[in-house]
Computed example of a mutant assay.
Amino acid sequence: MRFLDEVHPLTKTNKLSSGYINRAMEILKQQHPEIGGLYCCTMGGSLTFPQANGPQWMQIVHDGSDHWVLVAKGFSQPNYVLVYDSMAGSNWRSKHILSCMSSLLKTPKKEMTYVIKTCQWQGNGFDCGVFVIAFATSLANGQDPALLLYDPHELRNHLDNCITSGELSPFPSTLCRVKRTRKELVVSESVFCHCRRTAYMLPSREWKMIECEQFMEWFHTMCIDNFPVNENDPWLCKVCKS
């Protein structure tokens, strides 16, 4: 996982570490304080993102393997969480990113609905971090990244100049005049518990879940204070017990 705090020099082919991603989000937050989210990206490693505040928010999220993705809400389709992934395929479903999204959204509904946007694909295996910063900068400046065609040969030079100057400006791009063959996908994912997270769990007891027999809802050990010693015993949540 690329969770390193230092901002390493940008080369032609290096993958962006968390230090570089965090610095970019810090600059965006300074320039656009009205936009929520933009938390330290390393929170995603432990799935501990807080709920994002405000009508518009965005967050660059690591997938737990070796890839960066931008998630956002309140922009071109305000009713959905938008997913901008420069490597998204037709069967996109990253359990780790979906869990992070659900924490940021914390919807009171039974499902979280999101849209896989048809943004530009990267042409190599190392530019995902550069693309997500370009996507985030476009969104923050009122542009929809799905409608833009970025110049891959200029992205790194532009990013390097922005980080050096401490100001992120829109990346070199033109309007995409050719309709992309991929279609936007609208997908729903069930969420549970008081925390309104997806069913994805980290391998520890705190993440184990138990179902309330009456309410028919699942809860995490860490989110309740009356988890039974024997998790196979019948159990009622506090609301149903009172």
Rank of each mutant, 00 (worst) to 15 (best):
R2M: 04
F3N: 09
E6V: 14
V7Y: 01
P9V: 11
L10E: 13
T11C: 07
T13E: 13
L16H: 08
G19F: 02
G19I: 07
Y20N: 15
I21R: 01
N22H: 08
N22T: 08
M25E: 05
I27Y: 01
Q30G: 15
Q31M: 06
H32A: 09
P33K: 10
G36R: 06
G36C: 04
G37K: 04
C40M: 11
C41N: 01
G44N: 13
S46W: 14
T48N: 07
N53G: 14
G54C: 14
G54T: 15
M58Q: 09
M58H: 08
S65I: 06
L70C: 07
A72C: 08
F75L: 03
L82D: 01
V83D: 02
Y84I: 04
M87A: 08
N91K: 15
N91T: 12
N91W: 07
W92G: 13
R93D: 05
L98V: 07
S99N: 07
S99T: 02
C100N: 14
M101Y: 02
M101W: 05
S102I: 03
S102F: 01
T113C: 08
T113Q: 04
V115D: 00
I116E: 03
K117Q: 12
Q120L: 15
Q120F: 09
Q122N: 03
L139Y: 01
D144V: 02
D144K: 08
A146N: 13
L147H: 00
L147F: 02
L149K: 10
L149F: 11
Y150K: 02
P152Q: 13
H153K: 13
E154Q: 13
H158W: 04
N161L: 12
T164P: 02
G166R: 12
E167N: 10
L168C: 00
F171M: 09
P172Q: 10
C176F: 05
K183Q: 11
V187H: 06
S188M: 10
S188C: 11
E189N: 08
S190V: 14
V191D: 03
F192M: 04
T198V: 14
Y200T: 00
M209H: 15
E211G: 00
E211H: 02
C212D: 06
C212G: 11
E213S: 08
E213I: 04
T221D: 07
C223Y: 09
D225Y: 05
N226F: 08
N230W: 09
N232M: 14
W235H: 12
C237N: 05
V239W: 12
C240A: 05
